[in-house]
Simulated assay, not measured.
Amino acid sequence: MTTLHQPDTLQNVRRLSSILYWVCSLAIIFQFLVVPFIWYVPGWVETTSSQMTVSITDLHALSGWQKYATMLVMMIPSLILAYGLNHLRKMFGAFSNNAIFQPEPIRHLKLFGIALLVQTLAKPLTGAATSVLATFHRPAGERMLSIGLSNAEASTLFLGGLIIVIAWVLGEAARIDDENRSFV
């Protein structure tokens, strides 16, 4: 009777973590490019228009300080997510180097969850600020304040909370394991 070779789970974790480390790197770069793409790549915004609180025509009509202030405000959620993705990247880097149940990767996981929560809460606020900045130059009565909320934000809030709780549980498990090893 032959037995099937069981895959080395830790080797798979290291291999996949190495890949995800680089995927996170690409995602961080994309976060820095998403707002400039909206402004400068024609046709790209149609794929993200459901997330926009103002029309692309209103954005392109802006000039001077309004244009740059609006771009900066629009980048806030992307910058927060880039911060979180950097911590996720560091966690995958630690996993790929076999540091699995160590405090450092667990801390990075928790910081990613926090960044996800903060980014999700910031999106409606920055969307509202974007709509005010983009219509500020209009006469009274044509200015607008638009706040967009979707099911995706609710799901992301729960996901961020779940990640934070999992990080706390993993941290506690690692602490208990370290405590048990000190007794031996």
Rank of each mutant, 00 (worst) to 15 (best):
R14G: 00
G113Q: 01
G148A: 13
V23Q: 03
Q11W: 01
E46V: 09
A115I: 04
S50T: 14
I29G: 06
I76K: 07
E172L: 14
E172M: 08
P139W: 04
L149F: 15
E172G: 12
V13I: 15
G84W: 06
W39V: 04
R107E: 06
S146L: 05
Q102A: 06
R15I: 03
Y40I: 02
A152Q: 14
V23L: 06
A122R: 10
C24P: 04
I176T: 14
F95D: 00
I100Y: 10
F183Y: 09
W39C: 08
G93V: 01
I176C: 03
I76N: 03
V132T: 10
S96R: 12
P36N: 13
P42L: 02
R14N: 02
M75S: 15
S49C: 06
I80M: 11
A140H: 07
W44K: 05
T2P: 05
L149N: 11
L20W: 10
K110F: 12
V41M: 11
W39S: 05
L88K: 02
Q6C: 04
A134E: 06
Y83T: 08
R143V: 01
I19M: 05
L111R: 11
E142R: 15
F158Q: 14
I80F: 12
P7C: 08
E179G: 06
L62R: 11
G171H: 02
G141Y: 10
V132K: 01
F37Y: 12
T135S: 14
T3V: 13
A128C: 01
M74D: 04
Q6Y: 10
P7V: 03
T120H: 04
A115V: 03
S63R: 09
L157N: 07
L10R: 13
I19A: 02
M74R: 05
L159N: 02
Q66N: 08
G43D: 11
R107P: 00
M91C: 08
L72V: 08
R14F: 01
S49D: 15
I29H: 03
V54A: 12
I19P: 02
I176Q: 14
P103D: 06
P139S: 07
L170Q: 10
G171C: 11
V54P: 09
Y40T: 11
P7Y: 07
L157T: 04
G148K: 12
G64H: 12
